[in-house]
Structure formats: C-alpha cells, structure tokens
Design a protein around this nucleic acid. Sequence first.
RNA 1: GCGAAAGUGGCGGAACUGGUAGACGCCCUGGAUUUAGGAUCCAGUGCCUUUGGCGUGGGGGUUCAAUUCCCCCCUUUCGCACCA
Length: 837
Amino acid sequence: MKTERYNPQDIEKKWQERWAESSAFACTHESAKEKYYVLEMFPYPSGNLHMGHVRNYSIGDVLARAKRMQGFNVMHPIGWDAFGLPAENAAIKNNTHPATWTYSNIDNMRAQMKRLGYSYDWAREVATCRPEYYKWEQLFFLKFLEKGLVYRKKAPQNWCPSCHTVLANEQVVDGKCWRCDSQVEQKELTQWFLRITAYADELLKDLKLLEGGWPERVLAMQNNWIGRSEGAEVKFKLDKPVAGIEDITVFTTRPDTIYGCSFMVLAPELPLVQELIKGSPSEAELQAFIDRVRNMDRIDRQSDTLEKEGVFTGAYAVNPVNGKKVPIWLGNFVIATYGTGCVMSVPAHDQRDFEFARKYQLPIVQVVSESGQAESTDGWDCARAGAGFMVNSAEFDGLTSEEAKQKITEKFEAMGVGQAKVQFRLRDWNISRQRYWGAPIPVVYCERCGVVPEKPENLPIVLPLDVKTQPDGKSPLPATPSFAECTCPACGGKARRETDTMDTFVESSWYFARYTSARNDKAAFDMDALKYWLPVDQYIGGVEHAILHLLYSRFFTKALRDLGFFPDSLDEPFTRLLTQGMVLLGGSKMSKSKGNIVNPAEMIERYGADTVRLFCLFAAPPERDFDWTESGIEGSNRFLQRIWRLFQDGEDKIACVKACSSEAGDCASKEARELRGKEHATVKKAGEDMGQRNQFNTAIAAIMELVNAIYIFKEKMQDSEGDRKVFSSAMATVLTTLSPITPHICEELWERMGHKEQLAAEPWPVFDEAAMVRDTQTIAVQVNGKLRGTMEMPTGADRQAMEEAALAFEPVKRFTKDLTVRKVIVVPGKLVNVVAK
RNA sequence: GCGAAAGUGGCGGAACUGGUAGACGCCCUGGAUUUAGGAUCCAGUGCCUUUGGCGUGGGGGUUCAAUUCCCCCCUUUCGCACCA
C-alpha cells in the first residue's frame, strides 16, 4: 500500500488560508457568551521572530484555541510596539528611515506569525507608531496635565550618553542603561513626569487583588520597587539660622528613637547644604567633599562596600523633643531623593549610624532596651534592639518601642514640629525622551504664554516623516522648522513645539485596551467594549517586564479609570499573569553575539509549524526555561508522523464521527472498553491542563498516551462496527484535543475523516465519568507501608473483600509470616496496607 | 542582609486534596525488518551486593503511609539592597 507522507508545508498553508477566508478567529463584544481575553505582550518589530517569541505566542495561542473550544468568546489580538530607539539606530546604520525600517519589519514578522498559524483576530492589529494610535495617547497626556498627573520639573536625570536620551529609574539597571548597557550619567534637565507616585498606595494595596493570579516573585518585585515605609517627618530647628534656612526636616521610620539622636547627616548634593556651608570657615573643604561625592558614579555610590565617609559642617540642629544640640554632618551614603535627604542618626539602634558614630567618635545613646534597663554602650560592637522598652526618653520611658512610635509621633504633632508620614521608594516617571522616533508630546512653548498644552481638536500632533536622522543619534526634530515652529494654541503668537518625544513605555501602557475597539476613530475606546472585554484574563510574557511595563500599565489603568476613560470598576488590567521561561541553547540564553541561535523560520521550513509549536509546549512547563535540542524537536515531529501514520494505516476503519461519540454498547470487548475509558480520561485531563492549569506539557503527554493506546487497540480490533466506532471516536478525540497545539495537521486529518466543518469551530468534547470506570482495578498491596505487590480486583470491591484478598495474597503472607497483623488500612479502589508487628 | 522560586533517573520532566515515585518524551541497549543507512515495529531501561535492599538536596519529626505536612540545615537561580 502506498502511503502519503506527512507534508506539513502544504497542509499548513492550506489551513492558514482557510482560516483567513472564514475569519475563523474574529470576535465581537456583542455576544451573550462569557468572554475570555488572552493576550501576549506585543513584540517590538525588530526584524524577525526569535524562538522566545514563538514560545510566547504559542502558549497564548493554545490557550486561546482551547478556551474558544470550551465555549468562551475569546479575544486574541496582536500588534506592534513600534516606536523606539532600535529603529533609529538601524535607520542610521542602513541609511533608511525609521518608519520604513519599522513597517517592513512589521510586514515580515506578521508573515512569520501567520506562518505559525496563530489564531489572532487580525482586524484588531495596532501599531503604536501610527498617528491613529498615538493620537489618543496625546489626548491622555492633555487630560493628565489638566489633572496634575503630568508635570514639568528640572532635576538631575539619568542620562544615557550612547542613546542620547534620559531614562526612567526603572530603565536603569545596576547603574547602566537597560538597553545598551552604557554607564548612566546624571544630568540636570527639565523634563515631563507622570505622577505615578500619586497612585503608590493603590498600586501597592492592589497587589493583593493579584495574589493567586500573578507569580509571587513578580508581586514581590513590585512590592519592593514601590517600597513603602511608615514613619514620621520631624523638623529640627537650626541652632543658628542661616540665610533663608531655619530648620531641617528629616524622615525617620523610628520616631521612637528620637531621644537617642546624636547627630544628623545630610545628602551632600542637597541645595540647602550650599546655604548651610556658605561662609563657613571650612567651606572650601566641604565643597571639595560635595564635589567628590557628586562625581562618584551611581554604582560605587550605592554599593555596600562603599566606605562611609562624612564631614562636619560646623552647624548644629536642635532636637525638638529634648532641646539637645546635635552636629550636622554630610555623608556620602545619604540619598538625596529618598525621604527629605536628611537623616537623624541614632547610632545605638541603627547599624549604619553606629558605624558612622564609631568612625567619627560621636556619642551613642541607648533609648531602647530589651530588658528595660539602660546600659552602657561602650562595649557594643553593633547597633542593638530593634524592639524593646524605652529608656533615656523622658516621659516615654518604660513604654514598648511600638507604643512609643505612636506616642512620640503624637507629641510631634502637638508641638507642631512633625507628623506621621508614609514614604515610598517609587519615583515619578520621567517620560521625556530626546529622540526622534516616538510620540510627540502635545505642548508648545509660547514666547508670551509660556508652556501651553495643545488643543484636543489639534490632535494628533503628527511626527513628521520627512526628516533625516542624524548620524550622532540626536533628534532631528529641533532642527525641523515645519514641526518645531508653530503657533500658540492660546494666543496665536509665535511658539516652539516640544521636540522631546514620549517614552515608548507610554504606548505599551494602554494598548491592551485599544484592542477592544482598535478601529475606533471617534474615541480612544468604546466603553461597552471595554466593559465587556477588560480586564485581560490571561496575560503572557517575559519576566523582564516584571516592574517596568507591568507597573506602568497598572498605573495607567488606575489613572484612566479616574479620568473616566476606563470603567469605574476596573482596578487592574491583568487578572492572571504567566511569565514564560526562556528558550536556551546549550544551557545559555540564545543570543546573536554568542552565535547560539536557532532560527524559527528554518525550523518551520524543516519540520513545519505544528512541530515547532508542539516542541515549544512539550519541552517544559511554560514558566520554566528550557533547552532547545535537536533530538527534542525530532521527537515532537516523530509524534506527529505517528499520528499521520496511524490515520493512514487505519483509514479504511475510520468513520466520520466526532470525539467521544462511541457508546458503551459499542464496546463488545474489554479492549474496546479500555480504549473508550482512556479516551474520556484524556478529554478530561487535556481539557483541564490546557484550559485551566496552563500545563501544556502534561496535556500533550496525556494525548500521547491515548495515541499509544489506539496503536495497541488497532492491532487487536475486530472487524466489527462497534470496534470501528470506538477506534474512530478515539481518533477524533486525538485530533480535537490536540488541535489547539498543532492545529494544521488536526484540521487536515479531521477533513480527511469526512468532516465538512472546520475543527477550529468544533466544541471541546464532553467526557463521561462513567466511561472511565474500568472493569478491574489494580490494587497496591503494602505491608507496613512498603509495596509488596499489586492485585487486580473487580471495580467496586468492598473493604472487606479487599482486606481478605490482601491477607490471602502470597507476598503478604510471606512478609507477615513471623508477625501479628495489627491493623489493615483499606483505601477503596487504590490500596491495602497491612500493618503487622 | 531582605524577598521570591527551585532542588526527583544519563537528560527534559510527571505524580492535581498524603495512598503503587519516575507518567510522557529524549538518550541508550537488544531484537525484527532492510543490500546498507535512515525510518518503523517489538522488548528493555532509577541504583545496588537482586527470594532482597536503597532511593525525590541533607538531617530530624508527624503518620498505617510523606516528593507531598512540620522543624532545622545545605545548594542553585532570580529580584532588591547604605531607603534612614
């Protein structure tokens, strides 16, 4: 018999065309069905899909297809995070335009995605570099501005000299640029900020809502990043006020220890320090210290090996609670941007203060004692007592430190010198970028009116495309008169347009919502569609976005909610998050520079898209890293060949039936009943693993078991209608349950079974628990908890029958020969444990 | 230092509420088929001193029974880290 070979290239193309023709994956919010929104983090159009993309999008596609079959109205969209620096750099290098480069990459990658058979609703595709998209972002900017959520500030900024732009705090990793690894410098600039700190509390609190749906480590990272500390702000008056400065405010998490404050340390770069040291006899020395600290780079400055250094300013402050004069020092370890940049030092109870006090021979006063007795601090080698009883603290002596925290804070309030204060580590988000390829910021600088927001009706402020990128990477916009020179929206006079563009993370902070009405040119969103589709039920992407993108999107969701763009009830954008692992080669991350790359296009060419998808899902659970191996992908291909062959060899026995269509009455033989039982068990397991547990590897394993069982059955089956039906039904089940993972081969064989409707439109089979009940069960037999053998017993055997059978079981007799049976534990249908001594 | 995750055969991994540890796949071994190779099929495949014993990072504990629950420790990976 001549058998036809499995030829994925033809099959896959055929079905991709059919799905497109029938708009198989289009969706609408006007549906009575329960919705399910599956989203993978949209790609940056860098040129070609890499294996990480393939894994990411394959995971999402399986989920989308499985949920669709399971009766949900599924939205599965895709788009392009299309603004950003690489486009500019590539354009400079290849002497082209960023837009040309970007759009051609999009075309290429879209074709590659289609070649993988992803079930996207392509009608919802967005590209963030199109004015139809960023227009709405410019509108949000104006609304944010109105609400005070956007503001302009001059401050030292993270500056990447190689990218020629500032970076957000989140984009500085170990003192280096997240993109190009260059050392980040500090540069004083006037920039636009999004007031993410206004939502710090809510962003932190709502992490609770995500528990269970998000990986704990991502929640932990966000928690860390937001960094909430409770404490108090306290004002210390200067002993001798200097020009314009009468007092210094410190932030402390330990207001209870204020009686132990013996000095104060300030961050050297604070402006108030300049005032403080002016005219001091040692001004020159102090200035030298300040300059030296200022010039240290960020890494050295913040490493824990940094030697703590300080200088005494000559000035004193007065502790408000006891009137003691404390010297004011400058210290290289104090961070100007945290709290007030001024620290009250309590060396007895803070390790860092302790070391500093020892080094510069400053007094150490104990105010918290575990025993409640004041001790001498002379012999101490480190700071002590996080909690205990107050000592040396006037009327607070004897209180617990917890009580004192509150009481002393109340005292500050009563005295009018301070109050309770919650401090966050989170900083506002600098969104200005001194680069060309980004969304223009819709404000102008008018000679007469100053900073003027654009009028909403003037949006979009279109990024001009007729510019030439500069070889040095500097933005061409300031030198483009048609863009930079404009009229003031307020007075109509001469004005200059803002030529910085927005951080690309702004675009990706709301794209998931735009998909719900991607073609709407009247408004950013259609409220009905938002209410129906949001939040995203399952979001899938790499953990590298644990802070950046995910935090920004959470912030945008809350801000847009409060501006009325999003439904009131929407607090979080992504209900569940899956952070997929990396695809490695030879144990390390695939990278062009290392040359350890597996090109998806090549693999698709060699094995077909189905095999590539199958391997990506089978090799490991989705959140874990896995190593790409040649033998692994061949194994996956072999499995599909095996299904193909099973179908070819059994074609004369296959009837056009659906999954789980054979009935108990068709099962004349034990073998038929076994296969039918396995079939139903597979539907159950694969359905749960794919639809609920995101355990695609075990779903595949279960289907492989079914295929193995069909092979065994085929050898033994009778030429009877019943057996043919059992066989055909099991085949249909393989195709149906496997179709989310390898949709093309399944569609093809489904059609060859004689079905006229697409498998993509087929519902998930319904399993029958009764079918899974077997004639006999294997019972494990233990003696004292150790397995001594197994016995086959009729299903439903009662406890007594099981106990008797076990006691009569030869290995049990042998192992209990010299012992007395004390107890017999019976787990019906599973095991018998004979306890003997 | 703080926080999170993870340690199971030669390898990737399974075991969902404590109940036959190693499903499924890779690798490997033997056999069938083939001129040969490949492919396929069948059998085997945790370790050992094999009527038995030992095995889920190590050590204790709870239990008739522990990869699973509790305590202590070790290792690896990741994130944060002078945050007052």
